[in-house]
């Protein structure tokens, strides 16, 4: 089998996708990053390698997500792309004609508007992470319910309570108040979904024209309560694609296919990467008052990349330069 590999390394999850020449997704893996991007990518690659038939050839590999540069250096990526483009590319393939993409991940949320198959506008959340997956995760933990059950319970709500969604800290005190007033758990959960949707549409979606077909993706799309809250707020049908939680990786793989078609050969280092020894470290450069924090990645004790220096004197020294 010949195919393409896409890796999306986000703050909360790391996803790997392998699709074959015909564009069929053969394997997708969703892992928690747990603050160790390299280990997680290695684990994912090992799992993926073991699950694919022997003799599988990876013709190209793409990375995306906030850890895209790091991962790109480690696996030898052909395409290293930001998550907006990756998500848009994946959605337009899997949901033809899509006009609006709502994406809520672990610590970021974005909206992508497409018209005639081309991205026409996008926005990402700014400094505040209220209304993202991490917050739902945390609240589910506080209420003692597994996050997987969250959506199901929220759907049982009869009259969702009103919760302030502007700030996660205030939303939490609001929820505690509602709990102590005796509101039912499903009503509170549904209220929380409504609040997050309101916050999302007012901040990220501010001024954007959301037209059908609307696709909802990212880890939070697993939450049926959120899907319903979006449908209610938008008064539109909201689709959740079957690979909603690995769409970034799908997009990265698609971009890798295009990159390899253009440049000829892949720079993929092979599944052996999973067993190599990678070390990362950082140091503060004292060359000037900028005091840049320079990150260094080494493979088997050899420095393969550096970044973070504004003047590029460190990154140029190893050749693997990143933006």
């Amino acid at each position: 089998m010949i195919g393409y590999l896409g890796i999306d390394v986000g703050s909360v999850s790391t996803n790997l996708v392998f699709f074959d020449d015909c564009g069929v997704i053969r394997k997708s893996i969703y892992l928690r990053t747990r603050g160790k991007p390299i280990d997680t990518v290695q684990k994912g690659l090992k799992e993926l390698g073991a699950n694919l038939p022997s003799g599988t050839k990876v013709r190209g590999v793409g990375t995306t997500g906030s850890g895209r540069h790091l991962t790109g250096v480690i696996v030898g990526a052909d395409a290293v792309k930001n998550e907006i483009t990756a998500h848009a590319v994946a959605s337009s393939l899997l949901v033809p004609g899509v006009q609006s993409i709502l994406e809520i991940g672990g610590q970021d949320s974005k909206i992508i508007i497409l018209r005639n198959g081309v991205v026409s506008d996008f926005a990402m959340n700014t400094v505040c992470a209220a209304g993202t997956g991490s917050f739902l995760d945390q609240q589910a933990g506080r209420l003692g319910i597994p996050i997987e059950k969250f959506g199901e319970l929220a759907l049982q709500a009869r009259s969702p309570v009103r919760i302030a969604g502007r700030c996660a800290v205030f939303a939490e005190s609001d929820m505690i108040h509602k709990q102590q007033m005796g509101c039912s758990l499903p009503d509170i959960l549904a209220g929380l979904c409504d609040a997050l949707v309101r916050n999302y549409l007012n901040n990220v979606g501010k001024g954007k024209e959301i037209l059908a077909p609307v696709v909802f993706q990212g880890g939070v799309a697993a939450n049926a309560g959120m899907v319903r809250a979006f449908e209610k707020a938008l008064d539109l049908k909201v689709q959740v694609p079957s690979y909603f939680d690995v769409m970034g990786a799908v997009g990265a793989a698609l971009l890798a296919r295009e990159a390899v078609a253009r440049k000829g050969a892949s720079s993929f280092k092979g599944f052996e990467v999973a067993d190599m020894d990678y070390q990362t470290g950082s140091f503060e450069c004292s060359g000037c008052p900028n005091l840049c924090e320079v990150v260094e990645v080494s493979e088997n004790d050899r420095v393969i990349a550096r970044w973070g220096d504004r003047c590029s004197k460190w990154s140029n020294a190893v050749g693997a330069k990143i933006s």
Partner: peptide, 8 residues
Amino acid sequence: RLEAFLDM
């Protein structure tokens, strides 16, 4: 953001 914008 800049990358995504230029892609767009």
